[in-house]
Design a protein around this nucleic acid. Structure first.
Lengths: 242, 242
DNA sequence: CGCTGACTTGAATTCGCTCAACGCGTGTGG
DNA sequence: CCACACGCGTTGAGCGAATTCAAGTCAGCG
C-alpha cells in the first residue's frame, strides 16, 4: 500500500546506506537495535520552509536530521521570533519522554529527516540502554553548545555575533561533507535569510546587513550574491569573534 | 578513619533521609540502584563563595545539589563573566560521559551537595538504565530551560530581564521548601550580588541597580535591605516579564 | 514592464554602557 | 572610640551601539 507522498517506511538498506549512520545516535548501536529503529522510523523529505514541529504541540514526533539545515525557534509574546539553534545533519530533533514540543522546527533548506513516533521511540529507548546512552550524550553536548550560545547572546556585540555565526556555520557545514581543504576558499550558500540570521543572533535585520557590509568592505568576507558568503580572512574573522 | 572535614561517606541512612531523595535523579530508582549511589557518593558542604568545579578542568566530579544555590558560569576572553544558569536543590551538576567540565560551579549560598567521582558515576549509569533515564530526563528539561533563557538574553530589555529573573527565582526557591501560600508576601534573601545578577542577565551592575530602584519606586517590589527582595505586585511583575 | 519581497542605506532616537562621584555599612588598626 | 579604608550599591552625566523609522535599491517573476 502506498504511503503518503513524503513518507516511506525504512527498509533495512536505508540505515545501511544512511549518510549519517555513523554519526547520529545510530552510531555504534548493535545490529538488533538498528533493526528496531529501522522498523519504527520513516524517511521524510521537507521542502525549504516546511515545518516539522510546532512549539507547544503535543510531542508526537522525534527525528534525526539526515541532510539539510533546520531551525529551532520560539516566539515572544509580542511576536518576535528567537531562534534557539540550528540543526544540521546527524542532529536530533524533538523531545523524547516529554509531553509537549518545546520549540518549533522548520526546514531552512530542503531537508531529509528520519522520523519516529515518539511513543515508539520512547519505548525502544527505554528498553535499549545503548540507544538511551547515545541520546544522553547528544543531549549533553547540545546543552553545552546552547550554553556557549548564551555567552554570545548575553555578552557580544553585533560584530562578534556575526563573526561567530559565520565561523560556526563554516565548521558545522564542513562536518557534513568532506573535510575542508585548508587554504581553499570557504564559500557556501547561506541557508538563512537576513531576518533569520537576525533572529539567531538576537539582532535586527538592519544591523545584520550593516555588519555584513562592513565585513565585506574590510575584506574579511565576500558576498557573491545575497545568499552566498565566502570567508576570505579566516584568521581575522576569528580575531573578531574574540 | 576520619575523612576530610567537609566530606563524609554516605551511610545508607543518608539517602533515606535525604531532602531531595524524591526529586533528584535518585527519585524512583530501585533500592539496589540507590545502594550503589550510596556507595560511591559523598556529602560535601560548601561555604558561600567556594568553588566546586572549574571550567575546562578535567571532569572528575559530578554532583547533586541537596541544599543551597550555586551558579554555573563561563568567561569571555576579555574576562567578563556570563552566568549560564543557577542550580537549586535537586539539580544535577557536572558533565557525565565527558572529558572536561564545560562550566565553572561556585556556591552562592552555603550549600550541601552529594558528589560522585565521575568515573564511578559513569559506570553505575551505564550499568543501570533507570539511572541513565533519570539523567536523560533531567538533562532534557535543563536544555529546555536553557533555551528559554536564550529568549531572555536575546530579545528582552533590562526591565523584562529583571522581572523574569525575580519571578523565576521566586518559583524555584519556593519549590524547595513548602509551597507558597497565595496572597502571602513573597519575601526572601537574594543569594546573588548585584554583579552576579548582572552576569546572569547579561547586563551591567548599574543597569540592574537602576531597574531595582525603578521597580521599587513603582511599588512592584520592596527592598528591605540590599540582599532582600519582596515581590509586592506579582501580577504586575508578570506583565512586565511579557 | 512593473510588482513584490528581500535587502541595503541613511537619519534620528533610545536604551544600556562607561565613567565618575557619592553613600552606606563593616571591619580594622591606631 | 574614632578615623579610615574597603566593598558594595546607588545615582548622575554623557556617550555610543543598536534599534527604529523611513527611503531607496535590487533581483526575480508574472
Amino acid at each position: 500500500m502506498q504511503r503518503r507522498v513524503y513518507e516511506d517506511s525504512v527498509s533495512t538498506s536505508y540505515c545501511d546506506t544512511c549518510a549519517i549512520r555513523n554519526r547520529a545516535i545510530c552510531a555504534g548501536l548493535q545490529d538488533d537495535e538498528i533493526s528496531l529503529l529501522n522498523a519504527i522510523g520513516r524517511r521524510r523529505h521537507l521542502k525549504a520552509g516546511e515545518r516539522l514541529l510546532w512549539e507547544g504541540d503535543e510531542a508526537v514526533l522525534v527525528a534525526n536530521v539526515i541532510e539539510g539545515v533546520l531551525k529551532l525557534s520560539t516566539q515572544t509574546v509580542d511576536g518576535k521570533e528567537q531562534i534557539l539553534g540550528l540543526a544540521y545533519a546527524s542532529d536530533f530533533l524533538g523531545r523524547p519522554f516529554g509531553k509537549t514540543t518545546p520549540y518549533g522546527v522548520e526546514a531552512l533548506t530542503d531537508a531529509h529527516v528520519c522520523i519516529f513516533q515518539r511513543a515508539d521511540f520512547d519505548r525502544v529507548a527505554r528498553e535499549h540502554p545503548g540507544l538511551q546512552h547515545k541520546l544522553l550524550e547528544r543531549t549533553l553536548s547540545e546543552l553545552d553548545r546552547t550554553r556557549r550560545w548564551m555567552l554570545l547572546l548575553g555578552r557580544m556585540n553585533a560584530e562578534q555575533k556575526l563573526a561567530n555565526f559565520l565561523l560556526e556555520m563554516s565548521v558545522r557545514r564542513a562536518n557534513v561533507g568532506c573535510a575542508d581543504v585548508p587554504g581553499e576558499a570557504d564559500v557556501w550558500a547561506l541557508p538563512l535569510s537576513r531576518q533569520q540570521i537576525a533572529d539567531v543572533l538576537g539582532l535586527t535585520i538592519e544591523t545584520v546587513s550593516r555588519q555584513f557590509t562592513k565585513m565585506k568592505k574590510d575584506g574579511l568576507i565576500d558576498l557573491p550574491s545575497r545568499r552566498e558568503v565566502a570567508i576570505l580572512e579566516h584568521a581575522k574573522l576569528e580575531d573578531l569573534a574574540a
